[in-house]
Design a protein around this nucleic acid. Structure first.
Length: 883
RNA sequence: GGGCGCGUAGCUCAGCGGGAGAGCACUCGCUUCACACGCGAGGGGUCGCAGGUUCAAUCCCUGCCGCGCCCACCA
């Protein structure tokens, strides 16, 4: 017998272990079934499970479990990402606690240290994924730094280099002065600040007392100025074009050039040009052949290219110093507030410097072409569709991708330098050596490039590298392209776009047919969760309190397309209640000996109520499958919930009670079998959302059956809803509802008799009443109505039975006639209003001429229904008046 | 500056050209033999504002107001 309450903690651990040990999550590359593949976005190896993970992995698991049960060979490819900078920072913090730096250890020892850390602590996130009930094929778990994936990275690098799509270049990059590495544009976070705009006077050469005024937000970089630019059409400055001014402090003459970049509307209309420290100025410098003077070192302190007094100063200290000196010299014209955005490193949190360095770049523009086309042509579709715009926008304006990082943890760039600086790019050192030998005609010493690759470089290969590429293994052919990528919009650029580019380039086909973009999980007030705000909800905490199934169901139910998700504990609580409800319903079934009957034929049942529920549950299954096919997780969850609670528990089980207790043994047996069968279907449909409780019930309700629910196929039944049974049950449900409503409104004391009279066409009604004898008895019991004759049932108060066998029961003495009169009058008025609305529509010529016939028909039906209801109530009202 | 999304019941959100919905919260009544994490019955909305298209607009179009997000080389 089932326990009185469901205990998630024990059940979850037990079933997860069994599933994993029995290989229930494993894909089967030799299977004849159609494959269904999802690539798990690899969480950072440093990560621990947060709400965003919980959402994305729940949705993926719902899809995987669902398709697995639909008989597909489901592969959910798991793994973790080496997360270059993040991981390096974690280990560096450890070292810091020991009072050493990575430089004390040296590169090799440091990397060994990171691997040790990974072995010891890198499993947190995958352990937590198990607690979430995720069912990926753990046997295929990969790590972006493992040998196979590293091999893929090297091959891709070498191939792209050979194709001219990876190159080395000296350019301005985003330099992180704290982490001492270049970062990509995407890793730069723009923050709104109110800065200042300083107006400086630069003295004109050879004209004592004359100046050109420039405005700048970065006084400290003026020491690297190599020109002042004005707009070619700016009348104020025409006479100065081609002349020179003296850069104060540095005391260098610099030219005044004409360039359209100078905006006459901004600042003074004259702008100082610092090509080595500003992306715009870099371009201007190129156009005019200006010198590039780098004035910063890797810590963003001023270097030896500046006057001695400034050397070694931090950039912000130098800023104050420059401003002070300019003021002292009478060259500071004014200072204005200036709202602006300042670039910060998303990892380090410090201001990023544009800095001139040698870096490796990917020609993203070339790779983006086919990736753009694939989406335009619909070979890959985004869900919801509007994210395609975001993708297009970025792809069409894509910039070269800086892929080298000056850190240690990551895939080291497979490039070697010869003594003369010649670069040999090769997959192995041996190949590089061979190439060097061919080039230099003699053995030479090679030095390997010290940089590592951007973490996203290796994750861009994830959809095929994890399958074993570049080896010609069957997995690559079978599981690529994958069916759907499930991820958040925040990494469309970082990851999705790059997978599209690499996948198409190397595999010749898109990596996924669909990309489902889910929203962010926010707190219940709509705020982004963050540690600093202290509004982080820990999914594991929720799982401890409410059970994993409740958390999963909540996330699925909240995952409406295109909207952020506000996580509230009340919601989780509500779905915990749902699991309790399911548990109790199952208990009820068990107490009434509803056990699955082998060979039960759902299309052979005779009782109306059973025919009805079978149609309903199959319909529910179909609708859930449809919703999931459209990635409408919220609809799918809602459909499950409404059926299980609102239809099965609230109605079917209530109708079943008198049958279980009734004299008709055949009906009882059929209803028991049906109940068990329907419950099985519910468990099946619900399993992807609530895997644990459903598995537990599956096992306990029929311990002797073979196989676990997770491996049970979800059979398609040809049966559809039985319209006759449906109509009849609708009738009964309406009947019962009306009775309840009257009872409640009239304040009928418990136990009091309610005279319930029925109006209906006599012949059909009588027939129905016979059919529903048992249901009527239930009703009578439930509502404590007294039914004098089983043929004489039940309808809202003050109703009249028409036909030959009319029985009229007295109303007086049980209900308040005045109140009932008022109620009826109110309802009649409401109906009249509705009727008038419809009449107006039907009387409208335009409507009659232009509305589709089925709409007109629908409106006529509506009118008829309303009118019939009104007449019924009116008759009841006149009866009361007569009493 | 460019782009995207959102304003529907007290709250969180579905719906999206022809009858305003769900969950939670609220009110009332129930220790009914699965379940008080429950059962039953209710109250509550000019569907942001203003125009337009249409026989018909919460739904389509335009503008405005408010909120959120993304991108950008905004001296």
């Amino acid at each position: 017998m089932l326990d009185k309450t469901y205990r998630p903690a024990e059940v979850e651990a037990k079933h997860y272990r069994r599933w994993e040990e029995s290989g229930a999550f494993a894909a089967d590359v030799r299977s004849s079934a159609k494959p269904y593949t999802i690539m798990m976005p690899p969480p950072n190896v440093t990560g621990s499970l947060h709400m965003g993970h919980a959402l994305t992995f729940t949705l993926q698991d719902v899809l995987i479990r669902h398709h697995r049960m639909r008989g597909l060979d489901a592969l959910w490819q798991p793994g973790t990402d080496h997360a270059g900078i993040a991981t390096q920072m974690v280990v560096e913090r450890q070292l810091e606690a020991e009072g050493i730096t990575r430089h004390d250890l040296g590169r090799d020892d440091f990397i060994r240290r990171v691997w040790t850390w990974k072995e010891e602590s890198g499993g947190t996130i995958t352990r937590q994924l198990r607690r979430l009930g995720a069912s990926p094929d753990w046997g295929r778990e990969r790590f972006t730094m493992d040998e196979g994936l590293s091999r893929a990275v090297r091959k891709v690098f070498v191939d792209l280099h050979r194709q001219g799509l990876i190159y080395r270049d000296k350019r301005l990059v985003n330099w992180d002065p704290r982490l001492h590495t270049a970062i990509s544009d995407l890793e730069v976070e723009q923050r709104e600040v109110t800065g200042s705009l300083w107006y400086f006077r630069y003295p004109l050469e050879g004209e004592e007392g004359a100046f050109i005024t420039v405005a700048t937000t970065r006084p400290e970089t003026m020491l690297g100025d190599t020109a002042v630019a004005v707009h070619p059409d700016d009348e104020r400055y025409q006479h100065l074009i081609g002349r020179r001014c003296i850069l104060p402090i540095a005391e260098r003459p610099i030219p005044i050039v004409a360039d359209a970049y100078a905006d006459p509307e901004k600042g003074s209309g004259a702008v100082k040009i610092t090509p080595a420290h500003d992306f715009n100025d870099f371009e201007v410098g190129r156009r005019h052949g200006l010198a590039m003077i780098n004035v910063l070192d890797r810590d963003a302190r001023l270097n030896d290219a500046v006057p001695e007094a400034y050397r070694g100063l931090d950039r912000f200290v130098a800023r104050d110093r420059v401003v002070a000196e300019m003021e002292a010299r009478g060259l500071l014209e004014k200072i204005a507030d200036n709202p602006m955005t300042v670039p910060y490193g998303d990892r380090s949190g410090v201001v990023i410097e544009p800095w001139l360095t040698d870096q490796w770049f990917v020609d993203a523009r070339t790779l983006a072409g086919p990736a753009l086309k694939a989406v335009e042509e619909g070979r890959t579709v985004f869900v919801p569709r509007h994210w395609e715009n975001t993708y297009y926008e970025w792809m069409r304006n894509i910039q070269p991708w800086c892929i080298s990082r000056q850190i240690w943890w990551g895939h080291q760039v497979p490039a070697w330098y010869g003594p003369d600086g010649t670069i040999f790019v090769a997959e192995t050192e041996e190949e590089a050596m061979a190439a060097a030998l061919a080039h230099h005609k003699q053995p030479v010493e090679l030095v390997r490039d010290q940089d590592v690759l951007d973490t996203w470089f290796s994750s861009a290969l994830w959809p095929f590298s994890t399958l074993g590429w570049p080896e010609a293994v069957p997995e690559v052919a079978r599981y690529y392209p994958t069916d759907v990528l499930v991820t958040g919009f925040d990494i469309i650029f970082f990851w999705v776009a790059r997978m599209m580019m690499m996948g198409i380039h190397f595999m010749g086909e898109v990596p996924f047919r669909a990309i489902y973009i889910h929203a962010l999980v926010r707190d219940e007030r709509g705020q982004k969760m963050s540690k600093s705000k202290g509004n982080v909800i820990d999914p594991l905490g929720l799982i401890d309190t409410y059970g994993c199934d409740a958390v999963r169901f909540t996330l699925a139910a909240l995952a409406a397309p295109g909207r952020d998700i506000r996580m509230s504990e009340a919601r989780v609580q509500g779905y915990r209640n749902f699991s309790t409800k399911l548990w109790n319903a199952a208990r009820f079934c068990q107490m009434n000996e509803c056990a699955p009957v082998p060979g039960f034929a759902p299309d052979a049942v005779r009782e109306t109520v059973n025919r009805w529920i079978i149609g309903k549950v199959l319909d529910t299954g179909r609708r859930v499958a449809e919703a999931l096919a459209a990635y409408r997780f919220n609809d799918a969850a809602q459909i499950c919930h409404a059926f299980t609670w609102g239809t099965f528990c609230d109605w079917y089980l209530e109708f079943a009670k008198p049958i279980f207790g009734g004299a008709d043994a055949d009906a009882g047996a059929e209803t028991r079998a049906t109940t068990a069968w329907v419950l099985d279907r519910i468990l099946t449909i619900l399993h992807p959302f609530m895997p644990f409780i459903t598995e537990e019930l599956w096992e306990q309700l029929s311990p002797q059956r073979d196989g676990r629910l997770i491996e049970t196929a979800w059979p398609d039944f040809a049966i559809t809803a039985d319209p006759e049974a449906e109509a009849e049950m609708d009738w009964v449900v309406t009947l019962v509802s009306e009775v309840r409503s009257v009872r409640s409104e009239m304040n009928v004391p418990p136990g009091a008799r309610i005279p319930l009279l029925l109006k209906g066409a006599s012949a059909t009604t009588a027939a129905r009443l016979k059919t529903y004898r048992d249901l009527v008895v239930t009703l009578a019991r439930l509502e404590r109505a007294e039914v004098a004759d089983a043929d004489t049932v039940v309808k809202g108060a003050a109703q009249v039975v028409v036909g030959e066998a009319t029985v009229v029961l007295p109303l007086a003495g049980v209900i308040d006639l005045a109140q009932e009169k008022a109620r009826l009058t109110r309802e009649i008025q409401k109906l009249e209003g509705e009727i008038a609305k419809v009449d107006k529509k039907l009387g409208n010529e335009g409507f009659m001429a232009k509305a589709p016939p089925e709409v007109v028909e629908e409106q006529r039906d509506r009118r008829a229904d309303h009118a019939a209801a009104r007449d019924r109530l009116a008759q009841a009202l006149s009866r009361i008046a007569a009493e």
